[in-house]
């Protein structure tokens, strides 16, 4: 298996507060790595450092061997990194299909065309992708009124339009009902395993983490305190203490 993502010594401070301190991560093709930790542990910061939204103070991020630190998110996307957002971000004034068509237009570098109708471009491809994420029936619904779970599927379809090698998913199942959660995660893992896409995701729902992640990395106050297969991490006493907290121990 080839190494898709290699993060070394990643560090970021916000005015005195060291949000992320020296985190290392590795990810192979077709592998799903869950990044977990209590609220405020630095997961989101870590995420945003990798996808280019924030610039690290220190450390390196290599994607397919190429250093991507300092590149804006759109350049990182061009290299083959797709993403879904914690608070799902789609183009609210467009239909689900048009959202996916946008992704294709960008993929084929047709964004600046002044002639022709965007609504006709890559229509079939977009419908096919929506089919794959089980959204075909909602293709003409405005993205702004889609249910939470459907928006996440839409984001997934938009990411797939570019044929990504790495998928970054920030809290993919936040705010979803358990059944929705399971089906989204099952769908995601089916697709990424088939395509050999590496996935890095943060997640609160331990169910989703333990049933789908190949590996789990645990952050606590900006540091990685564990990294391994699910059952190893589950037994780790440091993880127990930090993740569940003194209150969690009571319950």
């Amino acid at each position: 298996m080839s190494r898709v993502l290699e993060v070394r010594g990643l560090a970021k401070a916000f005015g005195g507060v060291r949000a992320v301190r020296g985190v290392d991560l590795d990810l192979q093709a077709g592998e799903m790595l869950a990044l977990i930790g209590p609220n405020g542990a630095g997961k989101s910061t870590c995420f945003n450092l990798i996808n280019g939204q924030l610039q690290p103070d220190n450390g390196s991020v290599r994607f397919l061997g190429r250093d991507v630190v300092g590149l804006p998110p759109r350049r990182i996307w061009r290299l083959g990194v797709g993403r879904t957002f914690q608070v799902a971000a789609t183009f609210a004034s467009m239909s689900a299909r048009e959202n996916v068509q946008m992704a294709f237009l960008s993929h084929h570098r047709r964004l600046r065309r002044l002639v022709g109708y965007a609504g006709d471009a890559y229509k079939q491809e977009a419908c096919d992708l929506l089919e794959r994420v089980e959204m075909r029936a909602l293709a003409d619904r405005a993205a702004g009124v889609l249910a939470y779970g459907d928006v996440k599927r839409l984001e997934l379809a938009m990411a797939l339009a570019h044929g990504p090698r790495l998928l970054l998913m920030d809290e993919p199942t936040a705010g979803m009902a358990p059944q929705e959660r399971r089906s989204l995660m099952t769908l995601t893992s089916e697709i990424v395993r088939k395509e050999g896409i590496a996935v890095l995701f943060t997640e609160h729902d331990m169910d989703a983490v333990f049933s789908h992640a190949d590996r789990i990395a645990v952050l606590d106050r900006g540091e990685k305190i564990a990294d391994g297969r699910p059952e190893e991490v589950r037994r780790d006493s440091r993880v127990q203490a930090s993740y569940l907290g003194s209150f969690g121990a009571q319950s």
């Binding site: 609220n39 609160h204 569940l244 907290g245 003194s246 209150f247 969690g248 009571q250 319950s251």
Partner: peptide, 9 residues
């Protein structure tokens, strides 16, 4: 609360 332990206390 999200933290059930905290809420329970």
């Amino acid at each position: 609360e999200q933290n059930l332990g905290f809420a329970a206390a």
